[in-house]
């Protein structure tokens, strides 16, 4: 196959894309419906959902989407999940090179980048933070949802954990959402998570190693 500047680099499967979207929406809804219990002065947020009791119900419905969505995606696309697991458990020096320059990137300052793989160091770190954060919120959330069936000490410790994880994880998500949506040139991230693939320009620039691997795999040779 011939090499072309218009080549696409397939990145996310359908299951991952659909679930990323439902996860995004449910996270946002969970945040909004949870915050009135965090600070009472945020109670007006409940007006969006039709009152405190409705917000409570919606928090639970969104929680189910939030938890079972990714579970379903893993069942539907175990290979994609395995790829991510492989990536985040294999750290190379380029990953640390990237992380060391993360703030340069975040604030748009000039910096050199070593060619990155499928996930760069920052994305690997983000996967850990979001992965464990979401698991933590889901676990503590289910515990405080059903306190009557669980030991009191467990319930008591899950309250502060759920309460602390929610704003802290949202803090990480804000950075993640900024880089993916509002950082200059980040439109490409949406192409990947919405359409499934990246352009050659973006892939080669941000994931040079991976782009090369894909080209070789697809037999796209430069003439």
């Amino acid at each position: 196959m011939a090499y072309s500047d218009n080549d696409r680099f397939p990145r996310f499967g359908k299951a991952a894309r659909v679930v990323h979207l439902t996860h995004l929406v449910s996270f946002f809804v969970l945040f909004l419906t949870g915050m009135s219990l965090y600070f009472n002065f945020l109670s007006p947020l409940n007006l969006i959902f039709g009152g405190a009791n409705a917000a409570k119900l919606i928090h639970r419905i969104a929680a189910l989407v939030f938890f079972f969505g990714p579970v379903l995606a893993i069942i539907l696309n175990p290979k994609g999940f395995a790829l991510v697991l492989y990536q985040i458990t294999h750290w190379r020096k380029e990953d640390f090179h990237f992380i060391a320059r993360f703030f340069h990137k975040f604030f748009g300052q000039p910096h050199d980048v070593a060619p990155q793989g499928y996930l760069n160091g920052g994305q690997k770190l983000n996967t850990y933070l979001l992965g464990f954060g979401c698991l933590g919120l889901a676990f503590t959330g289910f515990v405080i949802w059903f306190p009557e069936y669980l030991p009191n000490w467990l319930v008591l410790w899950c309250y502060p954990l759920h309460s602390l994880l929610a704003p802290c994880l949202t803090a990480v998500v804000l950075g993640h959402a900024y880089l993916g949506s509002f950082h200059p040139g980040s439109g490409a991230s949406w192409e990947a998570i919405w359409g499934g693939s990246l352009s050659r320009a973006f892939a080669e620039h941000h994931h040079a190693q991976w782009a090369q691997e894909v080209d070789i795999k697809l037999g796209r040779v430069k003439r």
């Binding site: 748009g108 200059p184 439109g187 973006f202």
Partner: peptide, 16 residues
């Protein structure tokens, strides 16, 4: 800061 096609070999970038 949008990346341009410049067929680099993973060298310098200008702050993306």
């Amino acid at each position: 800061l949008a990346p341009k096609l410049h067929h680099h070999e993973g060298g310098k970038s200008h702050g993306v």
